[in-house]
């Protein structure tokens, strides 16, 4: 299982990374492994508001569907449109080309509540 050391995490296996003023969001390598071949990613629209801990979309394999939760609150500034035709990018490159949305955060303090890579690693170990 790969972990992006630059990112912060949610227990529900989303990652978040700060890029300039925005937060970029995806699901972890562990999450994509658990789901198997991803066939569809449902994402919000640019301009939608999201709230920390609330579902903003879902990711689907042939036999399962999981909600994706927002690591921080704010407004969606970009969505990864490539995933529409190539959902397998989430399997192939979960921290890179498989990113999902960008958020302009409304509350900078929310970032501090996210899990560090080390803490997230422990969560995954405990699950196993």
């Amino acid at each position: 299982m790969a972990i992006d050391m630059q990112a912060r995490y949610l227990k529900s296996h989303e990652w978040a990374r700060q890029e300039e003023d925005e937060i970029i969001v995806g699901i972890s390598d562990h999450a994509q492994e658990q789901l198997g071949d991803i066939v569809y990613v449902e994402l919000p629209e640019v301009g939608d508001e999201v709230a920390q801990g609330e579902a903003f979309g879902s990711v689907e394999s042939v036999k399962a569907a999981s909600d994706i939760y927002a690591p921080v609150s704010g407004v969606v500034t970009a969505v990864n449109e490539e995933l529409e035709d190539a959902p397998e990018l989430v399997n192939q490159d979960p921290y890179g080309k498989g990113w999902m949305i960008k958020i302009e955060p409304s509350d900078p303090e929310e970032w501090d509540a996210l899990l560090t890579p080390e803490a997230y690693e422990k969560v995954v170990e405990e699950e196993a």
Partner: peptide, 8 residues
Amino acid sequence: LDEVKAAR
């Protein structure tokens, strides 16, 4: 059958 292809 390839169900992944069918769904993607």
